[in-house]
Design a binder for these strands. Structure first.
Lengths: 108, 108
DNA sequence: TCGATAATTAACCGTGTAGTTAATTAACCG
DNA sequence: CGGTTAATTAACTACACGGTTAATTATCGA
């Protein structure tokens, strides 16, 4: 639906049309309501039609939000990669330490 | 919990300890079962304890899977960025076309 | 005015998720 | 053996999600 809206304004039935085999119109209405309350689209009115359009600002916000997390995300991705490289050689971190000790239980 | 396991082997109560304010032990057991069935961790047994360790291969699989999607993901991210740049100038794609025409209704 | 069209609302329903408490299993140890 | 500790299982609950059908609202146009 967003792809469709990226091509330009469209009302509910137009957006629903490719999906009507799989779901009902009310389902589409609800879906659209989510997008609207998420600030991604805007619904106006034209008689009995509800033309929808994309809200660029909403997407801009999302894009910015993602950008702030991309760094963190890729870092942890690389950290995982590094960690995996360290593990291939040694079987398991603890296996070298605490041999026979197992679990230190506190005496009452 | 995974962060904890990255530091080395740990049994269930040890993993649960930071969370016991918020959730019960059975909840942790279930959580761990999900991780295990996802191939991310491995549970062994040591008397009444169940030491868990990370399963590097599982993470390797995830890492590889993510890598295959990273390209696609970043592409669509950039496409969105491009699209937003085109939108800031012109208000809305359709607004220029179809003026006064509105909705062509098929005559019965 | 009345019928058709566009869309929404109301009232449900099934399922998956994530948790709970209480009971149960299993092992250790004095 | 009997108590304690570790963990799991069983049975249940609450809730969000995503959908449904049927009814309702609102508008246009002949």
């Amino acid at each position: 639906m967003l792809a469709q809206l990226a091509l330009g304004e469209a009302n509910v039935t137009e957006l629903a049309q490719p999906f009507l085999d799989d779901m009902s119109l009310p389902a589409v209405t609800k879906h659209l309501k989510v997008l609207e309350s998420a600030g991604l689209i805007e619904k106006t009115r034209d008689a009995q039609w509800r033309p929808c359009r994309i809200k660029p600002d909403g997407f801009k916000d999302v894009a910015e939000w993602m950008e702030t997390y991309r760094a963190w995300w890729e870092e942890s991705f690389d950290r995982l990669d590094d960690y995996l490289k360290t593990v291939v050689a040694r079987p398991t971190p603890t296996e070298t330490t605490a041999k026979g000790k197992r679990h230190a239980r506190k005496p009452k």
